[in-house]
Amino acid sequence: MPIKPRPTHTTHRATPAAALLAAAAGISGCAATASVEPAPQAHDPACADMMLQLPENLGESQQRPTDSQGTSAWGEPSDVVLRCGVEPIGATDEPCQRIDGVDWVFIEQEDYYQAVTFGREPAVEVLLGLGAVSSATAMPALSPAVAEIEQTSECLDYEQTLDGEGVEAEPAPPAE
């Protein structure tokens, strides 16, 4: 099922949820260009390098041009939308999964799944329409390109947080 945006007024600044939905909006009719809201850090050079590595196809959905920097879309209407330069996600209770060397935090929304990289800046966001291209197809295909962005931290699993493994302790204050 393609991602269907809610109508928004152009005179108002979009809320984060509306911006995510608007990011998936394709121009109606026969136009092949997808209208995607750029992320705040879409101009980051790391985004440009990563964008050049993206696959042309995700499953049976073909990549198509978008009207903004640091974005890509597959399928018509958009089954999958990628935005580079989104706000990095911090500590979260949402599930995190490492796929081909990239940590992705998955957040289920009402009409789509949202996946955001963890431990990479600029962060990358992928919106997957429910019933469209599966995450099992899309994420392994996108991860090699996203891996071009330097990883600075990684997700910890439940046992690591309990055992303290992988958690760096705060340095002790200097002795007086």
Rank of each mutant, 00 (worst) to 15 (best):
A145I: 06
H43N: 13
M1V: 04
L127A: 03
E176Y: 12
E60Y: 04
E168N: 10
I3M: 14
W74A: 10
P140I: 07
G90N: 11
Q109T: 05
P7R: 08
P88Q: 09
P140A: 11
A46T: 03
L82K: 07
G29I: 09
Q97R: 15
I99D: 07
G59T: 06
P140W: 03
A24C: 13
Q114R: 15
A34L: 02
I107T: 15
D103P: 08
S78R: 05
Y112G: 00
Q97W: 04
S61R: 09
D79V: 09
R98W: 05
A31C: 07
V126K: 08
A22H: 11
T92S: 13
L156E: 00
T15S: 15
C30L: 13
E110V: 06
A25P: 01
I149T: 05
P88W: 08
E148Q: 12
P65D: 12
V86A: 03
L20Q: 14
A172W: 11
P171S: 14
A169N: 10
A14Y: 08
H12N: 09
I99P: 01
G85N: 06
P65G: 11
D111N: 14
A172C: 04
M139S: 01
P65Q: 12
Q53R: 15
T33M: 09
V124H: 03
A34E: 08
S68F: 02
P174Y: 09
S61C: 02
C96T: 13
C47I: 02
E110G: 00
D100V: 01
T137I: 13
G59N: 13
D163M: 04
A91C: 10
W74T: 11
G75V: 07
G29V: 09
L21C: 01
E170D: 13
F118A: 12
A39F: 08
P16G: 10
P95F: 03
A46P: 07
P16Y: 08
S28M: 05
N57S: 14
V80H: 05
E76N: 15
